[in-house]
Design a protein around this nucleic acid. Structure first.
Lengths: 196, 196
DNA sequence: CCAATTTCATAATGATCGTTATTAAACCAC
DNA sequence: GTGGTTTAATAACGATCATTATGAAATTGG
């Protein structure tokens, strides 16, 4: 019994996601969030809890809705294809929406006040999870002979992630899609080949 | 005439720089700044102006005190040495101080509220200036035959900068110096050789 | 030594922050 | 329909934000 909820929680979450994506965790105020969502403050609190909980829900939704290219990439046959798929899709995602360029995993919080520390750590974990999957995939590639025995797969995964982070910063700075694709080309230009 | 200033402006500026370096522009409050500097609020305002002006002064000082490796790098004989000098020195700077890891150019502001927009833009310009110098140096390298005629020097400069940005994010996330050096190794292994 | 001037420290400014009482409206079971 | 329950909207909460009056302390020129 009781009154029915009048708003669509998914739409509200999408609106909040866009605000966080654009302004980051600390830069997004409840005034921004409620305006974007078209809902009053208490509705956000009753539906999602506090700001940190809302951000975590938005981050989850970000994974589900926009990062499907990551599991896709891991299924590709060669490590180079995996990396290329990730980098070019990251460029696409980082430049597709003029209202929120870059990546939530970076824009969300790189540095901030002590109060934002749990969110900053959540984003560190979020990025580390992607890197771990990539690392694992590269280990498999090494076992399959797709990568040389000498390669440092952990560093290689960190390198690919560093590229996505760096391009996300550049996308947020207004770099064009073409420019970022050229940067990705460069990153892939001499992928470690199985020498001998 | 009049009373003398009792604090050292350079030391106060250094203290403010460390706070911004650690918490970013938006995450650094005057409570943080005054505590670190050991001076009261009105002293900061009378000496530097408002928060934005203080940040800009801190950014200038950051360039002078910590980014001397950039002009050093540009003087090196080959483009590969230039890039290597930049990347390894960036790793060193990003991991040298446990209290403020990463890079002010990134930690300062990637995303934020609308109020922080001028500072965000100043950091974009700051990073663009470094990239432009690098681009120019690579153009010279091409003219000297150090780089192939076919290379996209703008994308190459953007690639090196993307690496520094990405590694700065990772340094702020707690990556070790050794790990980041391995990432830099990887970035340089993709360096374009003058084929044939 | 006095007057003018500058810096200092204390404390207050209005605004905005994230978070909730509070009350009216809408719904279901009975 | 009526009572119990959930949501909606208004408005307020204390805390903190960046910024600044205010007045005492300190210094120099006359």
């Amino acid at each position: 019994m009781g009154r029915h909820r009048e708003f669509d929680m998914e739409k509200v979450l999408d609106a909040a996601l866009c605000v966080f994506w654009r302004k980051g965790y600390e830069g997004a105020s409840y005034a921004d969030l409620t305006e974007a969502a078209g809902v009053e403050r208490p509705a956000l609190y009753s539906a999602f809890g506090n700001k940190e909980a809302l951000f975590r829900r938005a981050l989850d939704r970000y994974s589900e809705r926009y990062l499907d290219y990551l599991p896709e990439a891991l299924k590709l046959p060669t490590s180079r294809q995996v990396a290329a798929h990730i980098l070019y899709n990251a460029v696409d995602l980082n430049t597709r929406f003029p209202n929120h360029t870059g990546c939530l995993g970076i824009n969300g919080a790189v540095a901030g006040s002590d109060e934002t520390e749990p969110v900053r750590q959540a984003l560190i974990d979020f990025r580390a999870a992607g890197q771990a999957q990539l690392h694992e995939r590269f280990e498999r590639a090494k076992a399959e002979g797709d990568l040389p025995e000498t390669v440092n797969t952990e560093a290689l995964a960190a390198f690919v992630m560093a590229m996505t982070h760096g391009m996300a910063v550049q996308a947020k700075a207004g770099f064009s899609r073409d420019m970022l694709n050229a940067v990705a080309d460069q990153a892939l230009s001499t992928w470690p080949a199985k020498s001998s």
